[in-house]
């Protein structure tokens, strides 16, 4: 029977053990978020402390500017949302499919040297994002490795990082907007701009990201593939199911939870793209690789508009938190 004193001692011991983690997370995670909430309601310019009484309080004006006011802040923000949305729409399906393909190859019973290939596919995921970006800058540089490779096959490659043309425009073969799309669309961008698709430059970044992240997701599929009982597959074989049928009706359904995990982790992760943008393009050409994460950084630290910068962060935060809550909810439902 624990006495009251021993209970108090247990409490003290427990909290002593967790104290460093609690204090550091409180000071460098919770406190910053609260401070940033305040800053997003001001027009602090980086001079002195944002908590002095002479820092102008502007209420929700910074958020208002992003959505309703017809000015540069909204234009930049909407462009960044458009860019990132296209980026997500391409990166997530591609990496989900490529990771599955790689896992199936590595897992196949016919092949030797599995662990070598598994490592080769996974290695980019553990390498510095900055170092990889440098590598791809070289590969995608004008008349660089990729251009020469395409040349070899008789294809004339674009000037990747100076090409701001949207791929949807390119696919349709249009340079100028048809009259129907030239008019103003939602949030101050014309329909033509909304429907541009990712720019050629953004496609280079998409290629790099799919290449780096697929390895991690491949490992998740591999773990799931190894959990599928061999007997299940053999039973299907005895029933006369062909290879494709076995994949479609046995393997794929068993992988569904993993696929959901990969899809949602991808969704959450690809709204956060920053390092590659910073190193490779800084939002150029013509703002077509601007993303909310990079825009918030730029607005605060280059334009010294900390209020608008933090407001962008919080909108992005909201997007990501909603996606995370959705993921956790579905996974919990499935478990119970």
């Amino acid at each position: 029977m624990p006495t009251r004193r021993s209970r108090a001692r247990d409490d003290a011991t427990g909290w002593l053990f967790v104290a460093p983690v609690v204090v550091i997370l409180a000071v460098f995670l919770l406190l910053p978020i609260l401070m940033a909430m305040w800053v997003s309601l001001t027009s602090w310019n980086g001079q002195g402390s944002p908590f002095r009484s002479d820092v102008p309080f502007v209420g929700l004006d910074n958020y208002d500017r992003l959505f309703t006011r017809d000015d540069l802040a909204r234009e930049n923000f909407m462009i960044s949302i458009r860019n990132n949305a296209y980026y997500v729409a391409i990166v997530v399906p591609l990496q989900t499919a490529l990771a599955l393909g790689l896992a199936l190859i590595v897992n196949s019973r016919l092949l030797k040297g599995k662990s070598f290939f598994r490592s080769a596919f996974y290695f980019p995921s553990v390498t510095s994002s900055v170092a990889i970006s440098v590598m791809f800058l070289f590969i995608f540089s004008n008349s660089g490795a990729l251009t020469q490779l395409l040349d070899f096959f008789g294809i004339q490659g674009p000037q990747w990082f100076s090409d701001a043309r949207g791929v949807l425009h390119l696919l349709l073969g249009m340079d100028t907007p048809p009259a129907a799309l030239a008019g103003a669309g939602p949030f101050g961008l014309s329909w033509w701009e909304w429907l541009a698709g990712p720019s050629v430059a953004m496609c280079a970044i998409i290629a790099l990201v799919v290449w780096t992240t697929s390895g991690t997701f491949m490992l998740m599929y591999l773990a799931a593939l190894q959990d599928i009982p061999v007997t299940l597959e053999e039973a299907a074989k005895l029933d006369g199911a062909g290879r494709w049928q076995r994949f479609r009706y046995v393997t794929l359904p068993m992988l569904r939870p993993t696929m959901f995990l990969v899809l949602t982790l991808g969704l959450i992760g690809s709204w956060q793209v920053f390092d590659q943008i910073y190193v490779m393009s800084q939002g150029a050409p013509a703002k077509t690789t601007l993303t909310p994460a990079f825009l918030s950084y730029r607005t605060a630290f280059r334009d010294f508009d900390y209020g608008a910068g933090t407001a962008i962060s919080f909108v992005l935060f909201l997007i990501i938190v909603l996606l995370t809550l959705f993921q956790r909810r579905v996974m919990r439902e499935r478990r119970s």
């Binding site: 460098f28 910053p32 800053v39 959450i268 956060q272 994460a293 962060s313 992005l316 990501i320």
Partner: peptide, 11 residues
């Protein structure tokens, strides 16, 4: 998400 903490951490 770490990416929304840039400015807050600086603050």
């Amino acid at each position: 998400p770490g990416v929304v903490l840039f400015i807050p951490k600086f603050l």
